[in-house]
Amino acid sequence: MQTLIDNFFNLEIVVAAWPILLQGFGMTLLLCAVVVPVGLAGGLVVALLSGARSRCLRWIMVGYVDFFRAFPPLVLLIFIYFGFPFAGIDIPEFAAVVLAFLLNSSSYYGEIFRAGIESIGRAQIDAARSTGLTAGQTMRHVILPQAIRNVLPDLIGNTLEVVKLTSIASVVALQELLYMARQAQSVTYNASPIVVAALMYLVLLWPLVRLLSRLEHKTLAGR
């Protein structure tokens, strides 16, 4: 038992590693604060383009979405980070991560927004337009508020996935939580920093998982 505690919950090591773990946690939060809004905005654009009148544009968007949903995000990130310099584009880690996340999560968010918009009846659009609202106003004031409410559990679910996914930034040496924990582990030869990092993810995300579970069950009960 004592060896287990020494190896996984070694207080001395946790105390020593705490400052850099906190720093990593801060970077993870900063990363989320950038990639989640960027992904949501990208997703909205994808959804709006997917509903465009032009058939050609619609097919291009289907292609875009399927392409980036088929691509593992880590592969995308590595391709951008290690491949771009060969094309003469030097890209810092943070920008590479944001770009990879924009491409990946805008397709997922895009599909969710599209499903939401399609769940609103055609009659709503006709009614809104006949009261004199422009197409843009109809989208903003009539369709989107209802659409977003309809797909809120999916939006939250995808946001949870995006936040979890920020851990892959450690592979390109961005100093977020997992990277810092692994650094601390390799310096101390002790697993405690990784265990603590896992606990930090759990503290950050468990409330979101619970909320999501309740929302999912509520929509189910209302069916």
């Binding site: 190896n7 996984f8 949870l160 979890k164 996914l165 920020t166 851990s167 892959i168 450690s170 997992l178 692994r182 582990q185 697993a191 990784i194 265990v195 990092a197 896992a198 993810y201 759990l202 995300l205 468990w206 979101l208 998982v209």
Partner: peptide
């Protein structure tokens, strides 16, 4: 559901 898969893999492999 809450833990990132990469964190779980690293826990299993390194910890």
């Amino acid at each position: 559901r809450a833990l990132p898969p990469l964190v779980i893999i690293i826990l299993f492999y390194f910890a």
